[in-house]
Design a protein around this nucleic acid. Sequence first.
DNA 1: AAATAAGATGCATATAATATACATCTTATT
DNA 2: AATAAGATGTATATTATATGCATCTTATTT
Lengths: 149, 149
Amino acid sequence: MRLTQHTDYGLRLLMYVALKNGQRCTIREAAESFAISRNHLMKIANLLQHHGVLNATRGKGGGLQLAKPANTLRLGDLVQTLEPDMALAECLGENNQCVVTSQCLLIGVLSDALHEFLRTLNQYTLEDICVPKQSELRSLLQIELVTAE
Amino acid sequence: MRLTQHTDYGLRLLMYVALKNGQRCTIREAAESFAISRNHLMKIANLLQHHGVLNATRGKGGGLQLAKPANTLRLGDLVQTLEPDMALAECLGENNQCVVTSQCLLIGVLSDALHEFLRTLNQYTLEDICVPKQSELRSLLQIELVTAE
DNA sequence: AAATAAGATGCATATAATATACATCTTATT
DNA sequence: AATAAGATGTATATTATATGCATCTTATTT
């Protein structure tokens, strides 16, 4: 049972953007900081854009920003947005062929567990996983905030 | 986020064996009832054998039985036994390369959610998902118990 | 002993999901 | 016009998973 790297990278990107404290950041710079594929991050950024989590602006001086305050972005919701398929087993997805489906009690149990998983994640926001360690994280990611003059 | 079919099939096999009420069953018959790959089920049965969940006996008249009472087999434990990899993300597995690991607060959050997932599953046993609907399930699986004379 | 019926095991292959790369396009700024 | 950013579609690579095949071992029955 794994989340896709897609989801993992998506969360990292959001942490990166959040740590920029409202200053725009480019996908390239985030990809380089995490040493991960820029092309891959591009599609993730795009998906998050379409889901209203990120604002992306093209062109020179463009880049990414959070579309909402970090303390309103709940991790369970973000995982659901990023993850392409949350059907834990055949019986919870499409094209279910299992012969016992109509009477199966496992289905409810799995739904229940998945629900608890997401509920637990939703107890945390993007802010919760960034702010308490923001200076340490910025240092690891080599993020330097431009101070206003 | 999906469990492997391996895990799914493993749980189905255990339900099948449990519904046989202590009577031996062959892997072939379970595979045919669920219309799934016999070879695949073979390996799953073998794994469950090695983990002390199933008893398997070879030779004519052989087959599978539960190694423990169904009400002692908790679903969370079974999923952990069957699933090859429970590392939700790179940071929770081996070969983690993520640069923020040392300070990352997401790791704890993910562990927490995984823990709640398994805790929820462990509130149910194999008995819980078989007994309440046993006659309906036997009928769907074409299991006919041999009555003692 | 031979035949048969079961599981055990190792290897090979197929499939599908995921990740990555590449090329080109669009948008915005300078 | 040049440049710097994201957007998008297609192709390819990689990996995990599932499946199939062949052979071996064990146990029972005849």
